[in-house]
Design a protein around this nucleic acid. Structure first.
Length: 424
DNA sequence: ATAGCCTTGAAC
DNA sequence: GTTCAAGGCTAT
């Protein structure tokens, strides 16, 4: 193409119009040439991750060059991704670069895996099958919000996810009487404190740091969002703000279950990073998760109970939060009442973030029956740590009693929460 | 770091 | 020999 100095010395016959014509031809030629190379290849549809044009089956799913490369790079440098925007980032060709965490999750959800990666060509049948499966999925999910034509594909999809969520809940629905970790301030005499004081204060800081890191979403993102909503409600007189408008029970579950699943996953990562938990056997760790994850999730989000209302956002892009109204619809008024009863009591305690951050590992490791020395040992440390923390804050024995009572309320509502029938 | 293009090598 | 996916290369 011409550079500017050449253009300025162009004979006037090459008027702008004529020039643009040539340019157009040139572009067209290039375009066609480019297209010629691409056109004969198969139409793979949309990228399973970001909906860009797929260039082939990569790592088992139709995907674009970008997501193919991203998945590959992620495997190479396995660094830990973090989402700074609420773990719900949009995956579009434009937005996909914004958040690596969510893109990675989208890759996994889209079905990318090393297992399905293979060198060279795959059979025609197999390729057709993969593309067809993908078409069905994307057409049923992308039209989900409006599509009035209750297609069988769509209902199949819903049925499938319902089954999945129910089995998820069921797998968590295992026995258990929950006892509060046995702490007594009087246990902490000067003697047994001195030995491990340094260890305890280190452990304390570590727990707090990890709590901040993994609870950032609730402590900051949800919390700030709730505060700004409250602010707007005050200034706008609540006129223009419409939240949670008339959701049906089914819609509530549609919001809530994915959010729950996400919170369970992030709680598991949180547990894994607490000192000592990664050294537990898989069996022990799993028991901790199954028994305690609901309780811990509740503790993690308790801060979002503000002015008698609960502002856990079920979808950060919408204004839908798990208000009293929604909870009553989903759980029934009895359970909702008791959950809010717990929040009331818990708020009265005014626990510090430090206290909550050490309470959580103490609760998680405190299973009713131990058959493993590792777990009971771990729990011993965390009970000590909790006692230490409470004593640092000069909490009275009456306070501890109150804490125990509040905890009983919590474990009761969590147990009932597990038995709630999901109506979809 | 990303993503489009290119080379390599396996499956057909 | 051809087609396709993985992985390398490199301008942005």
């Amino acid at each position: 193409m011409m550079n500017s100095s050449e253009a300025s010395t162009c004979p006037s016959v090459l008027s702008d119009q004529a020039f643009s014509h040539i340019l157009e031809d040139y572009k067209n030629y290039n375009y066609l040439k480019k297209f010629k190379k691409v056109e004969p290849t198969y139409n793979f549809g949309k990228c399973n991750v970001c909906s860009d044009r797929a260039t082939g089956i990569h790592y088992g799913v139709p995907s674009c060059e970008g997501c193919k490369g991203f998945f590959k790079r992620s495997l190479e440098r396995n660094e830990e991704y973090v989402c700074y925007y609420g773990y719900n980032c949009e995956m579009t060709p434009k937005q996909r670069k914004r958040c690596k965490y969510c893109r990675w999750q989208a890759c996994l959800r889209g079905g990318m895996s090393l297992d399905s990666a293979r060198m060279g060509r795959i059979s025609r049948d197999e390729r057709e099958k993969i593309i067809k499966e993908n078409r069905e999925q994307s057409s049923s999910s992308s039209s989900a919000p409006v599509s009035p034509s209750g297609s069988s594909e769509k209902s199949k999809q819903i049925e499938k996810s319902t089954k999945f969520y129910k089995s998820l809940l069921k797998s968590l629905n295992i026995h258990t009487a929950n006892y509060f970790p046995d702490v007594e301030i009087t246990n902490l005499t000067q003697n047994n404190l001195e030995n491990g004081l340094l260890m305890l204060s280190l452990l304390r800081d570590k727990c707090y740091q990890i709590f901040l890191e993994y609870n950032h979403e609730f402590n900051k993102i949800h919390y700030d969002k709730a505060l700004s909503l409250l602010n707007r409600m005050e200034t706008d007189d609540g006129e223009t703000i419409k939240c949670n408008k008339n959701l049906t029970v089914k819609q509530i579950w549609d919001y809530f279950l994915p959010a729950l699943q996400k919170n369970i996953n992030s709680s598991i990562v949180y547990f894994k990073n607490l000192p000592g938990f990664s050294q537990l056997s898989d069996y022990d760790f799993k028991r901790c998760v199954i028994d305690r994850v609901f309780i811990v999730i509740t503790l993690r989000v308790a801060k979002l109970y503000i002015d008698k209302e609960f502002y856990l956002y079920l979808h950060l892009d919408d204004e839908v939060y798990f208000s009293r109204e929604l909870m009553e619809k989903a759980y029934g008024s009895e359970l909702a009442k008791d959950i809010f009863g717990f929040f009331d009591r818990f708020a009265e305690l005014k626990l510090t973030d430090y206290e909550i951050s050490v309470l959580i590992p103490a609760v998680v490791s405190n299973l009713d029956s131990y058959d493993s020395g590792d777990l009971s040992n771990l729990n011993l440390y965390y009970k000590k740590l909790l006692s230490y923390e409470l004593s640092l804050n000069k909490r009275s024995p009456e306070f501890i009693d109150k804490l125990k009572l509040t905890y009983d309320l919590l474990s009761d509502v969590c147990k009932r929460n597990r038995d709630v029938d999901v109506k979809i």
